[in-house]
């Protein structure tokens, strides 16, 4: 009898511990490979590491050096241009397509996958396709010339001042359909009684959308912004495949800067500092969003 009781006790104890035990491998992996590694990189950013990690502290030298480098400023400026255009254009196209597609369109089932399929591709594939499409010698410009439009010229990808915009084009191509899907889901979730009432009141289509529908899509706008902003900061593959950071250094982004400084130029300390800046940028965008999400669900 007594033995039975301790047995049951042990059982309950075990049942209490099992969930935590099951969760622990993932938590351990996360604490080491995410947060431990973040701390390690932060530490490295204060050391004089070159080709291999070193542990001598140099204070804020790397950060001072970083912000003194014209290559870093180019990368940051490019990110500002790229991110703002990318976020704005994706949102504009996504919203427009979602609203238009929501007008009881025949063939919606056909159009949606066409808008969305670029999402399934790797940025390397997207970059390969657009690199060629935008190449003046064989791509769009050449085609227009062959079709008789001789004055047509589109050489952005070879132009130092314009090349960053080709990255925007390819990135928008890849993700705007996804943003469309987010807005479409938002639109389908709106209670149409409100709209009917407004229509009966004689509101025009334009004011209906501007005053009622779009404000109700606020959560979708917020999600789209967070997703697009973090994708923009992380952009790496697309630049590698489309321009390789060139012409010259004209399309370097922080992600490509970090990689080349750390692994090919052997300036690991500076590379780590740039990674820390990238992380802080993302944290500034994500933290309030995550905080609100988690609080709401509690």
């Amino acid at each position: 009898m007594a033995r039975h009781a301790t047995d049951a006790d042990f059982r309950t104890k075990l049942q209490e511990w099992i969930p935590k035990l099951v969760l622990s491998p993932s938590i351990a992996l996360m604490l080491i490979f995410v947060y431990g590694f973040i701390l390690f990189t932060v530490y490295l950013s204060f050391t004089g590491s070159r080709m291999l990690p070193r542990y001598d502290l140099v204070g804020f030298d790397n950060y001072a050096r970083l912000w003194g480098l014209s290559a870093w400023w180019t990368a940051v400026t490019n990110l500002a241009i790229f991110a703002s255009l990318y976020i704005f254009i994706c949102t504009a196209i996504g919203l427009t397509l979602a609203i238009l597609l929501d007008q009881k369109i025949r063939g919606e089932g056909m159009l949606r996958p066409i808008y969305l399929y670029p999402m399934a591709l790797s940025f390397i594939v997207t970059g390969t396709a657009w690199k060629w499409f935008l190449d003046p010698g064989i791509g769009l410009e050449n085609t227009m010339h062959l079709w008789g439009w001789d004055s047509f010229s589109f050489g952005w990808i070879k132009d130092r001042n314009m090349a960053i915009y080709t990255i925007v084009i390819a990135a928008v191509w890849q993700t705007s359909g996804f943003v469309m899907a987010m807005f479409l889901a938002g639109l389908r979730g709106i209670d149409n009684e409100i709209l009917k009432a407004a229509q009966i009141d004689g509101a025009s289509n334009w004011s209906l959308y501007r005053r009622i529908v779009i404000p109700m899509l606020r959560p979708a706008f917020l999600s789209a912004f967070v997703i697009l902003a973090h994708l923009a900061v992380k952009s790496y593959d697309l630049v590698i495949a489309l321009t390789g950071g060139g012409p010259g250094r004209a399309t370097e982004l922080p992600a490509t800067f970090m990689y080349s400084y750390t692994f090919t130029r052997n300036q690991m300390g500076t590379g780590a500092a740039s990674a820390v800046i990238m992380l802080m940028t993302i944290a500034a965008i994500m933290m309030p969003y995550l905080y609100a999400e988690l609080k709401e669900k509690k």
Partner: peptide, 28 residues
């Protein structure tokens, strides 16, 4: 099987989805 502190753990896990991977390249 919720327990004290599970929301914080989940928050940490969630944030890890969005980190720029450059921050873990060197230690990895």
């Amino acid at each position: 099987w919720r327990f004290r502190g599970d929301t914080i753990l989940f928050g940490l896990l969630l944030f890890s989805c969005f980190i720029p991977f450059q921050i873990v390249l060197i230690p990895m």
